[in-house]
Structures are given as structure tokens and as C-alpha cells.
Nucleic acid binder design. Structure first.
Lengths: 134, 134
DNA sequence: CTAAATTCCTATTATTTTTATAGGATTATA
DNA sequence: TATAATCCTATAAAAATAATAGGAATTTAG
């Protein structure tokens, strides 16, 4: 039940951008040094956040990334879902697919409830909240 | 954040044994057929449950497995933790290790809370509850 | 008694997913 | 116009997951 580095690093990037949220663009070089993650791997992760509109980018010299909304407008859940693809504990709850044996599956209600519990919590926490947590 | 087949199958085995909980020993052959999982893979999974004392085994002809306690004495969490090893969303919350940068880690409180939320839910559900869920 | 059916044990293999790295094209600015 | 950045596609390395294989040990049913 682990969150992969994609999700963890995506959250770190968002937190880092939030901590340097002064309207200027922050380069991956800076983030990579602060968070101790390679620039190349960060490129892949920030690419996802960028495509999803979670960050704005500026190419070229002195370019970089910045948050595109206020820190209270991102939930932990939204960041993790975008970067991980899905947070569902079993793949039959991913997207639209759904298992054929869903009707008769005795375990499914448990997984559904677990999914709900996780989602409820992660959607209740904003990036702003995370910065203030201790 | 997926539960692996180890955890899913372990739960299936426990549910199957609960559904045939008449004091007799149920062979892996039966369970394998009902749950559509290979006997060989089941052996590995039930081995874990057996070592943990979750099931009792009887070797030899007409042997098999049966629950060693009442269905209300197993939580979903205990079954999944034994089979998966850990349910923690990040490895720094596994066992005793702990990350060196824990003090300064801005994400950690979120992961701790998520771990708590998951654990609270899964420990609140018993095998008996699962059989009655819909 | 003994053949059959089962658990138990240790390796090994195959597959998939995760975790990156590489190289260079494109873009904007200082 | 050189430099520093994002962006894009492909590839590789490592780790974890999922499963199989072969046979030893055990118990019972006939």
C-alpha cells in the first residue's frame, strides 16, 4: 500500500513551490538541490503537474515553475491522484473498468469503504494545511 | 497505493475458510478451485497465515486448514498486515527504522495521519463484518 | 499396510512496475 | 547571441510482485 516516488516527489515539489510562492518562476535545478532529487527525474514528475494545470511554466533562461492557484486550492488527494494515476487500493476500483465478478465479490465492499476513507481524508487536507501541520 | 495479491488472496482465503467454518479442515485444492488461484501460490500465502497462528493446519490425507479463532476475532487490518508485511503508505513509517530527516520533513505529518486513518478503519472491521457486508 | 492426498519447505523463474537516465530539441532572456 | 532553462521521446537498470517447480514429510482412508 505504498505511495510511489512519483506521488511523494510530486507532493514535495508542490510543497517546495508553495514555500517559495512569490510569483517568480522556480527552476528545477533549485528544487532538485533542495529536495535531493535528480533534475531529470523531476522533469518527468513536474511534466505531469504541468499538463494537469497544477503549475505554470516558463521556458528559457531564468524560467521555471510556479503554482497556478492558491495553496488552499490544492488538496493532497488531487496532487497524489494526478501523479500516481489512482489511489484506489485495488485495481477494480480504478477508473471505469470494474471487475466482472463485482456482483459476487465478498471483499469489494471493504475495498470500496477503504477507498472512501482514504479519499475523504486526503481531499480534506490542502497544500496550505500541510505547510501548517506539525 | 495498491494492496498486492498477497494481501488480497490472504483475505480471500480467510473469507473462504470463514464461509466453510464447520470445524473440518479445508484443503487448498478446494479453496484454489473456488477462488481461482493456483494451489502453489496459495501454499505460500497460507503458510504466512499459518505461521502467524491465524489458521490451524492438518497435514496428510483429508488434511487442510481451518480458522483458529472466531470470525469476530480477526480484523481486516490484522490479516492484511500479516500478509502484506505493512500497510504504511511510506516506508519511513514501517517498523522501527524511521527516516533521518523525519524532524524536518514537511510531508511526514500527512503520511502519519493517512496511516492512522487507514489503520483505524481496517482495524474496525472484522472478518465477521466482511461476511455480512453488502 | 500402503497408496493417496495433503501440507510443508526451499529454490528458481518470469513478469511487471518502479525508478530513474540519456540525449537532444525548443524556447526565452540576460 | 550565448546561456540556462523547459520539453520531449526513448531507453535502461533495479526492485518488487507474482508465480512455478520439485520434492520431502505427514496422515489418513481403504
Amino acid at each position: 500500500m505504498k505511495i510511489s516516488t512519483k506521488g511523494r516527489y510530486a507532493l514535495k515539489v508542490m510543497i517546495d513551490l508553495a514555500q517559495h510562492n512569490d510569483g517568480t518562476y522556480i527552476s528545477l535545478k533549485e528544487i532538485a538541490e533542495r529536495q535531493d532529487i535528480s533534475i531529470k527525474y523531476l522533469e518527468a514528475i513536474v511534466g505531469i503537474l504541468n499538463k494537469a494545470g497544477f503549475v505554470s511554466s516558463q521556458r528559457g533562461k531564468s524560467g521555471g515553475y510556479r503554482l497556478s492557484r492558491g495553496t488552499d486550492e490544492y488538496t493532497a488527494g488531487s496532487i497524489l491522484k494526478i501523479s500516481e494515476g489512482s489511489l484506489a487500493p485495488v485495481s477494480c476500483l480504478d477508473g471505469t473498468a470494474g471487475c466482472e465478478k463485482a456482483e459476487e465479490c465478498v471483499s469489494l465492499p471493504l475495498w470500496r469503504n477503504l477507498d472512501r476513507v482514504v479519499d475523504d481524508y486526503l481531499e480534506s487536507v490542502t497544500l496550505k494545511d500541510i505547510l501548517e501541520m506539525k
